[in-house]
Amino acid sequence: MKFTHPIISIDELQSILQDPHLILLDCSINKVNQKLDENNIQLIPNSYFLDIEHRFSDQKSELPHTLIDEIKFTKEAQFLGINTDSIIICYDRWGIYSSPRAWWMFKAMGHPNVYVLNGGLVAWKNAKLPTTKTYLPIENIGDFQAKLDEQWLANVNDVLDAIDQSSIKIIDARSTKRFNAEVDEPRPGLRKGHIKNAANLPFEMVLNDTSFKSEQELTELFKEFHTKKELIFSCGSGITASILALANHQINPKQTIKVYDGSWAEWGKDEELPIE
Rank of each mutant, 00 (worst) to 15 (best):
residue 3 F to G: 07
residue 6 P to Y: 08
residue 8 I to C: 14
residue 13 L to V: 09
residue 17 L to W: 09
residue 18 Q to I: 05
residue 19 D to E: 12
residue 22 L to E: 11
residue 34 Q to E: 12
residue 38 E to G: 04
residue 44 I to R: 07
residue 48 Y to S: 14
residue 59 Q to K: 00
residue 62 E to Q: 09
residue 66 T to R: 10
residue 67 L to R: 13
residue 68 I to W: 08
residue 73 F to M: 13
residue 73 F to I: 12
residue 77 A to R: 06
residue 81 G to F: 02
residue 82 I to T: 11
residue 86 S to D: 01
residue 87 I to G: 08
residue 88 I to K: 04
residue 89 I to A: 10
residue 89 I to G: 10
residue 91 Y to V: 03
residue 92 D to M: 08
residue 92 D to F: 03
residue 92 D to A: 02
residue 93 R to W: 14
residue 96 I to C: 04
residue 100 P to I: 12
residue 102 A to S: 15
residue 103 W to C: 13
residue 111 H to N: 07
residue 119 G to C: 10
residue 123 A to L: 06
residue 128 K to E: 09
residue 129 L to R: 04
residue 131 T to S: 09
residue 131 T to E: 05
residue 135 Y to N: 04
residue 135 Y to G: 03
residue 140 N to S: 04
residue 145 Q to W: 02
residue 148 L to K: 15
residue 150 E to T: 11
residue 150 E to Y: 01
residue 159 V to N: 13
residue 160 L to Y: 12
residue 176 T to V: 00
residue 176 T to D: 00
residue 176 T to W: 00
residue 177 K to G: 00
residue 178 R to F: 07
residue 178 R to D: 10
residue 179 F to V: 04
residue 180 N to P: 05
residue 182 E to R: 03
residue 183 V to F: 07
residue 187 R to S: 14
residue 192 K to H: 02
residue 205 M to K: 03
residue 210 T to M: 01
residue 211 S to G: 12
residue 211 S to K: 15
residue 215 E to R: 15
residue 217 E to D: 14
residue 217 E to C: 07
residue 219 T to H: 13
residue 228 K to F: 11
residue 229 K to G: 13
residue 230 E to P: 01
residue 232 I to A: 07
residue 235 C to D: 11
residue 235 C to A: 10
residue 236 G to L: 13
residue 238 G to Q: 07
residue 238 G to E: 08
residue 239 I to V: 15
residue 241 A to D: 09
residue 244 L to Y: 08
residue 250 Q to N: 12
residue 250 Q to K: 10
residue 251 I to C: 15
residue 252 N to P: 12
residue 252 N to I: 14
residue 261 D to K: 04
residue 263 S to F: 07
residue 263 S to I: 06
residue 264 W to M: 12
residue 265 A to K: 11
residue 266 E to C: 08
residue 267 W to P: 09
residue 272 E to N: 00
residue 274 P to S: 14
